[in-house]
Design a protein around this nucleic acid. Structure first.
Lengths: 155, 155
DNA sequence: CTGAGTTACTTTAGACCTGATCTATTCAGG
DNA sequence: CCTGAATAGATCAGGTCTAAAGTAACTCAG
């Protein structure tokens, strides 16, 4: 019995769609968090941050990380602090602007993340393996529509 | 530029689907959280908890709340504490079991929630208004599949 | 009836997240 | 130059969440 099941009876279409979306998202996210903790003793926010740095080998400034991850700056500070303490990322000074840092993966960070990303993708593939290729692309396309209309509505 | 856009290039199908699902979910959730704060000076967890109690006028025990909301017991304790302090819910003793409480909405809680739920559904309808009725039901059905296969894979 | 195991809830430590505020630096006009 | 606005980042308070440990009450075999 979860939130969604408990409320199906008399709600309306858009609301039901939203609750189901939330349920799916939480099911996967919860599992990924648990596995990241068990297998790699890390967390989803840390994984996400490292994933961004992985795509930008020259590093990113704090505010760029903040935009990419869609979280506040104060939050990025905290996560980078923790990753830095573990030696997975480093803050290097930005010569052009003494206020700014450039955050990048260390050698150890790259090694660690490469392995994590490989295993992580396997988890997702496994969790969604029950969906046919067509179901996956159909869902992907419909969620593209949802993403678009939601972003437009939010403006 | 968000997480998903930043990573589209060379990822595989299931992973892309998951990232898009996460993006959609976060877009809506973020907006709902912001509006709940601005309009009602409350938070999504508090709203969710009250929403469960709304459906069970006789109240729920703490562990039932925990199961419905899919969060840990310690978390429920904290949220109920805050709602109780605001006079929106009350803990009443459970005669049959002196370890347990029965949590229910107070009169003020019912009044407050009724208004919040009405406005909240309006927000969701508005945010998803760009989707046709068919798109909504198609997405709903595909997410039902995803929910099912994900829960089965998680077992 | 008793004590070992279970269950209901709370507490705690630690991570996460936001919004607001602070410090230091940069930049744009005058 | 000099000053005020804007920007980069850090810090803080408060709420959220988990896992683990703690307390009290219940259950039921022996």
């Amino acid at each position: 019995m979860d939130r969604e099941t408990a409320s199906r009876t008399d709600d309306h279409q858009a609301l039901r769609l939203w609750l189901r979306l939330l349920t799916c998202s939480q099911l996967i996210e919860r599992e990924v968090r648990a596995r990241l903790g068990r297998r790699f003793a890390t967390t989803l926010p840390r994984f996400d941050l490292m994933s961004q740095l992985w795509r930008y080998p020259d590093g990113l400034k704090m505010n760029e990380l903040s935009r990419h991850l869609m979280v506040t700056g104060g939050n990025v500070t905290g996560i980078v602090d923790l990753l830095e303490k573990d030696g997975l990322v480093e803050r290097t000074p930005e010569p052009a602007d003494r206020r700014a840092y450039r955050v990048r993966l260390t050698r150890a960070g790259r090694k660690t993340f490469a392995e994590m990303a490989r295993v992580h993708e396997g988890w997702i593939v496994e969790m969604l393996a029950g969906l046919s290729r067509k179901e996956q692309t159909d869902t992907y396309r419909l969620l593209a529509r949802m993403k678009r209309v939601t972003m437009e509505a939010g403006t």
